[in-house]
Simulated assay, not measured.
Amino acid sequence: MTGLEIRGLRVSFDGFVAVDGVDLTVAPGDIRFLIGPNGAGKTTLVDAVTGLVKATGSVRFGDHELLGRPVHRIARLGVGRTFQTSSVFEGLTVLQNLDIAAGAGRGAWTMARRRRTVPVAVSEALETIGLAGRQDALAGTLAHGHKQWLEIGMLLVQNVDLLLLDEPVAGMSHEERDATGALLAAISAARTVVVIEHDMDFMRSFARTVTVLHAGRVLSEGTVAQVQADPRVQEVYLGTGGVA
Score class of each variant (00 low, 15 high):
209 T>N: 13
214 H>A: 05
217 R>K: 11
94 V>D: 00
83 F>G: 00
96 Q>Y: 04
96 Q>I: 01
25 T>C: 15
91 G>N: 15
81 R>I: 02
129 I>W: 00
63 D>Y: 07
183 L>A: 03
104 A>L: 11
12 S>L: 10
119 P>S: 04
234 Q>P: 01
109 W>L: 14
68 G>N: 02
156 L>F: 08
96 Q>W: 00
218 V>L: 00
5 E>R: 15
170 A>S: 14
140 G>Q: 00
113 R>G: 07
80 G>Y: 07
134 R>H: 05
163 L>Y: 09
84 Q>I: 04
86 S>A: 13
177 R>T: 15
213 L>Y: 02
193 V>G: 06
156 L>Y: 08
50 T>D: 12
169 V>F: 09
53 V>Y: 03
77 L>I: 04
92 L>D: 01
50 T>N: 15
150 L>C: 06
162 L>C: 09
216 G>D: 01
124 E>W: 05
111 M>N: 10
9 L>P: 07
137 A>T: 11
56 T>R: 07
47 D>I: 01
209 T>Y: 01
242 G>L: 09
224 V>D: 06
193 V>R: 09
220 S>F: 05
233 V>R: 11
227 V>M: 08
187 I>D: 00
185 A>W: 08
43 T>V: 03
195 V>E: 06
149 W>F: 14
161 D>K: 15
52 L>Q: 14
139 A>G: 14
130 G>I: 03
160 V>W: 07
123 S>K: 12
156 L>A: 09
62 G>C: 11
40 A>I: 04
98 L>V: 13
196 I>L: 08
39 G>F: 03
157 V>W: 06
161 D>V: 01
225 A>Q: 13
68 G>M: 02
204 R>D: 05
77 L>C: 04
50 T>F: 13
115 R>D: 13
93 T>L: 02
238 L>F: 14
85 T>D: 15
67 L>A: 06
242 G>P: 09
128 T>G: 01
39 G>T: 04
160 V>N: 13
49 V>F: 12
103 G>I: 08
168 P>W: 09
12 S>A: 14
21 G>P: 03
9 L>V: 12
111 M>S: 11
162 L>K: 09
56 T>Y: 03
134 R>G: 02
154 M>D: 07
117 T>V: 15
235 E>G: 10
203 M>H: 03
86 S>W: 04
137 A>W: 11
101 A>M: 06
140 G>S: 04
229 A>R: 01
27 A>M: 09
63 D>C: 02
27 A>H: 15
58 S>H: 04
154 M>T: 10
81 R>Q: 05
214 H>L: 00
85 T>K: 11
150 L>A: 04
240 T>N: 12
80 G>L: 03
192 T>S: 11
180 T>W: 01
209 T>V: 08
60 R>I: 01
127 E>T: 14
107 G>S: 12
74 I>D: 02
30 D>T: 08
7 R>H: 07
64 H>R: 13
150 L>R: 07
183 L>E: 11
134 R>P: 00
100 I>P: 00
193 V>A: 03
235 E>S: 14
108 A>C: 03
7 R>C: 01
